[in-house]
């Protein structure tokens, strides 16, 4: 079976570095895409969302990234993200609390657009984390 080399990197964490993988699903700003061996070169912005990768001969691994980029070049795929969390590491209760808090902040009046957007993103991230975290349990 064909494989490609996969790295998933964050500034404070190296999840994978040049490991052989058979498939990768990431969420770009335009939607979810799957990368298989032989994919055309691609540079994309990643939205907060899930990723799934399948290392050669192993079970698929699911996780969440907050934001970042994906770079597909010939047969090497690199994901650079701000933060990476694997599904089993997600604390669903904490995500729930974060969602609640951010939602409360959103209902408060009189914030500028930027802060509003910030809390919106927070809610979005919290929801995604709950979804992914809930699935794996």
């Amino acid at each position: 079976m064909d494989t490609f080399s996969l790295s998933i990197l964050a500034p404070e964490r190296r999840l994978l570095q040049n490991e052989r993988a058979t498939s990768l699903v990431v969420t770009t700003v335009d939607g979810e895409i799957e990368i298989l061996p032989g994919h055309a070169n691609l540079v994309g912005i990643l939205a907060p969302g899930r990723f799934v990768y399948q290392a050669e001969g192993q079970k698929a691994v699911t996780g969440v990234i907050s934001s970042g980029f994906v770079n597909v070049e010939e047969e090497s795929v690199k994901v650079v993200a701000e933060t990476i969390e694997l599904a089993q590491e997600i604390d669903v209760n904490r995500a729930k609390a974060a969602q609640k808090k951010a939602e409360e902040m959103l209902t408060a009046a009189g914030m500028d657009e930027q802060t509003f957007r910030k809390y919106q993103l927070k809610v979005q991230r919290a929801i995604i984390r709950q979804q992914i975290g809930g699935v794996s349990i």
Partner: peptide, 21 residues
Amino acid sequence: IHELTLYEPDKSTIYAALKNK
């Protein structure tokens, strides 16, 4: 090779985001 690369959404958006990073 880089000219044949796909960009999602497009070059200038990526560049703007990347620059800050």
